[in-house]
Amino acid sequence: MRLFDVLGPVMTGPSSSHTAGAVRIGLTARKLLGEPPARAEILLHGSFAATGRGHGTDRALVAGLLGMQPDDARIPGSFALARQAGLAFSVGTIALRGAHPNTAVLRLEGSTGHRLEVVGASIGGGRIRICSIDGITTDFGADQDTLIVHNQDSPGHVATVTACLSGHGINIATMQLYRSAAGGKAVMVLECDEPIPEEVAVYLRRQPGIVKVTTLNL
């Protein structure tokens, strides 16, 4: 473990999993949405549901949706700040089957009407996994620059995406493919060594069979 992971990080208490990790789930969901959220339905599962209020998990998720980092001192006051920022939100609970005990479901609508559902788990020490996007299973840590492509499950899309990235000199660190059912919807998650430029997203969005392109640049 690196030195400043042992002595650090600086974070707003009380819990790295229930507070700091929750901020990161909210922040990642905001970046995936690609615009400030105007509405958010937040659902807490498992230990998040049982102890979330005491740990400030609800306020941490909202703080992340507002773009705050885990060490932001304004996290405890995020509910009031959300009202000022025009974010309407609700917090409830949900029982998910087989999910990590520290899981949150975020259903978002952006200021221009984009919609997104993200399921994120806080897996300890402030680290997270994004477990699903719009109902399709994923598994990535949101700690690298990431390109997420929703497409029709038909041949050729992987080649299109990888060719486009290599054309821009972007190195792919890991790549995962998920699909809802054969011939149905599919999701590609590519963790990259460099930020993904907007031209890549614009180009890919124009390709037939590609439904949605999301970038997560750190």
Partner: peptide
């Protein structure tokens, strides 16, 4: 106590044990 009250702390090594050092 600051940690429990959602103040900023240094996890050292964790948030729960942040008061010792």
């Amino acid at each position: 106590e600051c940690n429990a009250c959602m103040k900023r702390i240094v996890a050292a090594p964790t948030a729960g044990s942040c008061g010792v050092l």
